[in-house]
Computed example of a mutant assay.
Amino acid sequence: MTASVSAPDFSNSPTSTTPQFWTWRGFRICYRQQGNSGPAMVLVHGFGASMGHWRKNIPDWADFGQVYALDLLGFGNSHKPTPGLVIDYTFETWGDLVGDFCREVVGEPAFLIGNSIGCIVVMQTAVSYPDWVRGVVQLNCSLRLLHDKRRASQAWIKQVSAPILQNLLAIKPLGDFFFAQLATPKTVRKILLQAYRQEEAVSDELVELLLQPSRDRRASDVFVAFTRYSQGPLPEELLDQLPCPTFILWGEDDPWEPVQLGRQLANYAAVDAFVSLPGVGHCPQDEAPNEVNPRVRDWLQQQVQREANP
């Protein structure tokens, strides 16, 4: 990608309306909304991403529902308060944010759709705010393989190296330097080519979409805070408490969240269906929207019908 590539232009795209802002606990949260009737959907991105990661899904889903895509606190165009001073970047924090968003902005119970760590966020929301969540869709849920509770099952090198790296990143000059090495077009593209199976999906637009928020002066602090976060809920713990049905989609070629481990989540009672997608990586909604969009739409319509005819 050359320096002449600018931020993604949503102004003439059918995927977006004008960005809007909602104040949550004194912080500005950015979101977009499309669709005027039908079931409400709230889309939650993964780590390092933003609501633009749903640009290939929103138009289709807005044909039959009200779609809201937001930037979590610390990401995209939302506020990035300094971690630990006034707020912590945890799944409980983000779950509270999404729950309040459903109540104050959406104004009705919604279906929540997440990718990667966004799946943990939406499940946490459903557990904490069951009256505001109708169902959950998960796309390659983060298995949180570096969680403290999983450390004993990891290879000894990971058991030793992960805490050392986390402690080093806590030293601000080192954390800032590490982040600066990652937040370049070349490195972002290289990471995406690992996460995506279909190389043509890794476009200049996508690279810039992920890079643009990293230029915020506090983006490094948020990045380091989350990479050092090894506590909080595991997906299976939330699935065990989930008060609503969930549909799980999984790109089979995800290098970070192995599908063989993902399939184990299908054993929980809350899982209505588990579908794996061959030849797709960690972000199915962006890499294979033609496969994801109709499957999600069909499942949501089934849930609406089930609610109408229990």
Score class of each variant (00 low, 15 high):
1 M>W: 02
4 S>C: 04
6 S>T: 11
9 D>A: 13
12 N>P: 03
18 T>F: 00
22 W>H: 09
24 W>V: 11
32 R>I: 08
35 G>K: 00
36 N>I: 07
42 V>Q: 06
49 A>Y: 02
50 S>Y: 00
53 H>Q: 11
55 R>C: 08
55 R>N: 15
56 K>P: 09
63 D>N: 15
73 L>W: 13
73 L>I: 08
78 S>Y: 11
91 F>I: 00
93 T>E: 14
93 T>F: 06
95 G>H: 05
97 L>H: 07
100 D>G: 02
101 F>L: 08
102 C>T: 10
103 R>E: 15
108 E>L: 02
112 L>Q: 04
113 I>E: 09
116 S>Y: 01
117 I>K: 00
117 I>G: 01
121 V>Y: 06
122 V>S: 00
123 M>T: 12
125 T>K: 01
127 V>T: 08
134 R>F: 09
136 V>P: 02
138 Q>E: 14
139 L>T: 01
143 L>A: 00
144 R>W: 03
144 R>D: 04
145 L>D: 02
151 R>Y: 04
152 A>D: 15
156 W>F: 14
158 K>T: 08
160 V>H: 06
161 S>H: 01
162 A>I: 10
162 A>T: 11
165 L>S: 10
169 L>G: 02
176 D>Q: 14
178 F>S: 12
189 R>M: 06
190 K>S: 15
191 I>S: 09
196 Y>R: 06
203 S>I: 05
205 E>N: 09
210 L>P: 00
210 L>I: 04
212 Q>A: 09
217 R>C: 05
218 R>S: 09
220 S>D: 15
221 D>A: 15
229 Y>K: 00
231 Q>K: 13
235 P>Q: 04
238 L>G: 09
246 T>W: 03
246 T>M: 13
248 I>E: 05
248 I>P: 08
248 I>G: 01
254 D>P: 10
256 W>F: 12
257 E>A: 07
260 Q>S: 15
267 N>F: 04
271 V>F: 06
274 F>T: 03
287 E>W: 02
291 E>H: 07
293 N>T: 07
294 P>N: 08
297 R>L: 11
298 D>M: 14
301 Q>D: 14
305 Q>D: 14
308 A>F: 03
